[in-house]
Design a protein around this nucleic acid. Structure first.
Lengths: 158, 158
DNA sequence: ACTATTTCGTCAACCACGTTGACTATCTTA
DNA sequence: TAAGATAGTCAACGTGGTTGACGAAATAGT
């Protein structure tokens, strides 16, 4: 019922990668909700991290995430709405509106990192640390080009 | 520029899984476009496969994909629009509208499988076959619950 | 055989996330 | 100082998801 057909040889790999990713993300957000961050959506962690401790502008954020400045601006709007980001005027350039992580945002980010560390430790318990490391190494080899490109309506292509 | 900060230990894994998935999906669709299927979007392959050779209904498709029947219906509409699926009346039940893969849809599906097989072979060439198999085994172990759950606005949580 | 319930499909409204194009305000440069 | 580049926003739109409501058809129960 959840598994229709045994996928063909090549079909399994993408499905497994997606399932692994979703497993981590779902577990993360279940735990984040328990720890006081129920509004944090999967995308938000990536965005908060991309904003970084120094802050950025919407345009630069868009470049970092591989999306348009308009899309980045809308995402910032939502994060501001739930209190994870704030906008401040740049005193040196009246066009720019600096985007900064709020204390609440920093808390969510810190907890995300801790939870991910714990989840990784769980994987290492189940699979063995060397298998997890091997997986990271191998994925790093194959996927180096797609690091942090989130330019996907609905998270996929085009 | 594509890599903002070296991610924290636990942060790398989900990012790598996503990047690996996206690499495969992007490569697949680049090749599919070359082979005459430029309209095929990433989601579509999963849907076509979930419809299967025997056809289904929108409601059952929704269950298979873990999404609502309405969402499944809309996706079917789009696939019908580009000629990959067709709807036919069920003579035994006037409520049901059978969804079937068209010949064009079957061609896209067959090519997807072939391309995925080739991409997997590329991974095996680069990493060694046993590393790819190990990755599949390990991911299968960790992610068995999320097989074919696509219930994500924009492919994430929520 | 006739209600009562369930099921299938669809409509409508909405949300999240992406796109492009156009436009203003501001900063930079020649 | 005029001309050009850059930051942000608005508007319209596309895709993929949600819930709620509803009619038509099948099924169950009496």
């Amino acid at each position: 019922m959840a598994t229709p057909d045994p996928p063909r040889p090549g079909f399994a790999l993408p499905l497994l990668l997606l399932a692994g990713f979703r497993t981590l993300i779902d577990d993360l957000h279940a735990e984040l909700a328990r720890e006081g961050h129920p509004e944090l959506r999967p995308l938000h962690g990536f965005v908060l991290q991309a904003v970084g401790a120094d802050g950025t502008t919407a345009t630069e954020l868009g470049q970092r995430l591989g999306i348009s400045k308009q899309a980045a601006g809308k995402t910032v709007d939502r994060l501001v709405g739930v209190g994870y980001l704030e906008r401040v005027d740049d005193p040196t350039d009246a066009r720019r509106r600096l985007v900064r992580v709020t204390p609440r945002g920093a808390d969510g980010l810190r907890r995300s990192a801790e939870i991910f560390d714990r989840l990784r430790a769980q994987w290492a318990d189940t699979l063995g640390p060397e298998r997890v490391t091997a997986m990271e190494d191998d994925l790093g080899t194959m996927a180096s080009a797609n690091w942090f490109r989130l330019d996907v309506p609905g998270w996929f292509g085009g």
